[in-house]
Simulated assay, not measured.
Amino acid sequence: MTTFGYAATPYGQIHYAECGAGEPVLLLHQTPRSWDEYREVLPLLGGTRRAIAMDTLGFGNSARIAEHSIEAYADGVLALAEALDLGSLALVGHHTGGVVAVEAAARAPELVSRLVLSSTPLVDEQARARRRDAPAIDAVAERPDGSHLSELWNRRAPFYPLHLLTRFVRDALAVWPEVEDGHRAVSAYRMEERLGLIRCPVLCVGASADPFAFPELARLTVRLPYSTSAVIEGGMVPLEHQAEQFATIVEEFLCS
């Protein structure tokens, strides 16, 4: 059974969902999602360990923040780990969640025992330059007739199965109008300065049908010490689409 809670932290209350008991694994979602991205994964990992999916600060039902940054998101991750007295833990992140996981693992190498980076971009100088002039991913101008809602839907439609689009749009509207701020935070992050601080084993996971992140898999893996990689054939942008395969890969890595 998945249960829910709020943890009091110096940054405000952080909402989380959890399932199972034992060694903890903390799951971080992409932008602009919530814990719901791991709805299917939680009970699968929760069969052998304590699986926790949090709402990143500024998203879902967690406290809003004054300024979005990867560093601020990582503050929330480490604050939740302390509030729940998790001790040593495995950290898993998907897309933006993977970037946040990098910062948390670099900042607290004594805390993070294993790291899974799913569909995670390598954000170096080259990537920052490329992203600087790139069009917005989810930001749309609000219109009186509500047509911005269909525009938000249509922007993600090529990359999401129909049954998952509603869940995406619900999460996006929960943070409106800050729907693009997480993407901007990723684009400003200096990841190349943090990768060498990671001390634990790392698994980089790529979803072959994710046109944005999959080309980054090899580049990221070679930049990380103690890393291996795995590919989910047919995996897409939304983690829910490959929940069973993803949970299996993560479980095997955590048990290795």
Rank of each mutant, 00 (worst) to 15 (best):
L117N: 10
S118Y: 10
S118V: 13
S119C: 15
S119T: 09
S119P: 04
T120N: 05
P121D: 02
P121R: 00
L122F: 06
V123M: 07
V123W: 02
V123T: 06
D124N: 15
D124T: 06
D124Y: 01
Q126L: 12
Q126M: 09
Q126K: 12
A127Q: 07
R128I: 05
R128D: 06
A129R: 15
R130G: 10
R130D: 09
R130V: 00
R131Q: 14
R132G: 10
R132F: 13
D133N: 15
D133A: 14
D133I: 08
D133L: 11
D133W: 09
P135G: 01
A136W: 08
A136S: 11
I137E: 08
D138E: 01
D138W: 04
A139R: 15
A139P: 02
A139W: 11
V140N: 10
V140G: 06
A141Y: 02
E142M: 02
R143F: 02
R143I: 05
P144M: 04
P144N: 02
D145V: 07
D145N: 13
D145F: 11
H148Q: 11
H148K: 05
H148E: 12
L149C: 02
S150R: 13
S150H: 04
S150V: 12
S150M: 10
W153K: 05
W153I: 01
R156T: 06
P158N: 06
Y160M: 11
Y160E: 04
P161N: 05
P161G: 00
